[in-house]
């Protein structure tokens, strides 16, 4: 196919690049395609080239129509989650060189509706996130009654700060085996955030949140397979948060 001509000649990527990788992109437009189609592109890369760089290289020089979502390019915005060689990862946080493969296959993340090509709809995840009441709940407020501030020691911060690292990229939900079959499951992203607020010493909304997650498609659907934590690019470890929450519900933790 003509598209597979080497990007090397026209590419703005350094021409001296000695290595070429085959980037296999899953293309699909639900509006008029009947199924996914894999298209191969040859892309030059360096030790530091990320998968996102390579996709953008293709977009710039070989196929403008490739749909991809990104913003920060530094694992902060959570936009560029996709399946890279079978595992959900951030495209901007994955180097071609670390994959040790001559072919890099990029596909949209599983367990989300496809918007187009590599872009998926995260609406349901955001809705589940909102269900967790992702804010500090208490009667008094620093803002409306600014007579005092809510104290927090560094040790108390440590209790939840790892969960506050979540960038809502959705990789965890895509790796989760329960999510693979249950469309109503709240998912590790949301459950991890429930823990984030429950573990915050300023928060008084613990029982309200425990009630929300204690439902048939809620926390009990987790089997502790741990895949969410293994793919999380920010060290959130949602599986830990879920088991700790379950500890509260089962009465092992106060």
């Amino acid at each position: 196919m003509s598209e597979t001509a080497l990007a090397e000649e026209q590419s703005s990527t350094e021409v001296s690049s000695s290595k070429i990788v085959t980037l296999r992109i899953a293309k699909f437009n639900p509006e008029h395609d009947s199924g996914q189609q894999y298209v191969d592109f040859k892309v030059p890369y360096e030790r530091w080239t990320t998968v996102l760089d390579a996709v953008l290289d293709v977009k710039k020089h070989l196929d403008h129509s490739v749909a991809v979502r990104y913003s920060c390019r530094q694992a902060s915005c959570g936009s560029c989650g996709m399946k890279i060689n079978g595992r959900p990862r951030l495209a901007c946080f994955t180097k071609i060189s670390e994959l040790n493969s001559d072919v890099v296959t990029v596909e949209p993340m599983n367990n989300y509706p496809i918007v187009r090509d590599l872009v998926v709809k995260l609406d349901k995840m955001f809705a589940n996130h909102k269900k967790m009441q992702p804010y500090v709940i208490r009667e008094d407020s620093e803002i409306t009654a600014p007579t005092k501030e809510f104290n927090q020691t560094p040790e108390q911060l440590e209790e939840y700060i790892q969960f506050a690292n979540c960038i809502k990229c959705g990789l965890c939900n895509s790796a989760c085996p329960t999510m693979a079959t249950d469309s109503s499951f709240l998912g590790p992203q949301a459950l991890g955030q429930a823990y984030r607020y429950v573990a915050d010493n300023r928060d008084k909304g613990k029982y309200s949140r425990l009630k929300i997650i204690d439902e048939s498609h809620g926390i009990w659907r987790c089997h502790f397979a741990g895949s969410c934590s293994q793919v999380c690019p920010k060290g959130v470890d949602p599986a830990m948060g879920i088991q700790l929450l379950r500890g509260y519900l089962l009465g092992f933790r106060k």
Binding site: A239, M240, R246, G247, L250
Partner: peptide, 25 residues
């Protein structure tokens, strides 16, 4: 699995550091 589900042996929350090895695993 039952111990894990009860919150035992799944690690302690801490400020994560690259390469972010999850404590629960």
């Amino acid at each position: 699995v039952m111990l894990g589900h009860g919150g035992y042996g799944v690690g302690k929350p801490a400020r994560p550091d690259y390469p972010y090895t999850p404590a629960s695993q």
